[in-house]
Each structure stands twice: as C-alpha cells, then as structure tokens.
C-alpha cells in the first residue's frame, strides 16, 4: 500500500531518502511506506504515519535493529524494514 502526502514540489523529491539512511540523533518526516498493506498498517498504528516526525534513537550492538522515536513512543525496527520507509529531511536541515 502506498500512502503518501501529495506534493507538487518536484524539488522535494530529491531530498527523499530512506529511514535507515539517517544517522543516530537525526530527525526526518515520514513521506510514505513502501511495504505490503498489513505491515504498513501495523506500523501506522504504531505512529509511523505520513507527516509524522521520526527521530533516530539508540541501536542494538552492531547498529541493527534501531530504535525510532515517533508519535510519543519508541519502536525498534530492523534495517530491512526501516529501509522501506521513505522520509524527507526537514527543510532547514537539508539546506
């Protein structure tokens, strides 16, 4: 299922990257989830909704899985899942 925030600004597509590419401590806004419907739904119920800000927290030894802070809670995801979540850097950070 593709859930995304509609945008006409083509400039913005260039600042898209996947969640797993963020460094610890960085923040980004979720754009859409590139995952099968049942899994996206589960993640959206946990707060991974397009438009929400996600912050990268601590990780397990070796850097994977990682804890993400979103919508008031902390959720651990493996790299393989986090790399399917497409995020946008906040404007000030990408500038």
């Amino acid at each position: 299922m593709q859930v995304s925030v509609k945008k006409n600004d083509s400039e913005d597509t260039r600042s898209l990257l996947h969640l797993a590419a963020l460094e610890p401590g960085q923040e980004a806004v979720l754009d859409h989830l590139r995952l099968p419907e049942d899994i996206s739904r589960r993640l959206m119920e946990l707060g991974f909704l397009p438009g929400h800000t996600i912050a990268v927290g601590k990780a397990a030894p070796g850097g994977d899985p990682r804890v993400y802070r979103v919508d008031g809670s902390e959720v651990a995801l493996r790299y393989e899942t986090a790399s399917r979540l497409v995020v946008r850097r906040p404007r000030k950070a990408s500038a």
């Binding site: 899994i39 993640l43 946990l46 899985p65 809670s73 959720v75 995801l77 493996r78 393989e80 899942t81």
Partner: peptide
Amino acid sequence: GTPFVLEM
C-alpha cells in the same frame, strides 16, 4: 516471514 517490530 514478517518483520521485526518491537515497541520499547
């Protein structure tokens, strides 16, 4: 398999 999603 299904992904690892664990709320802390």
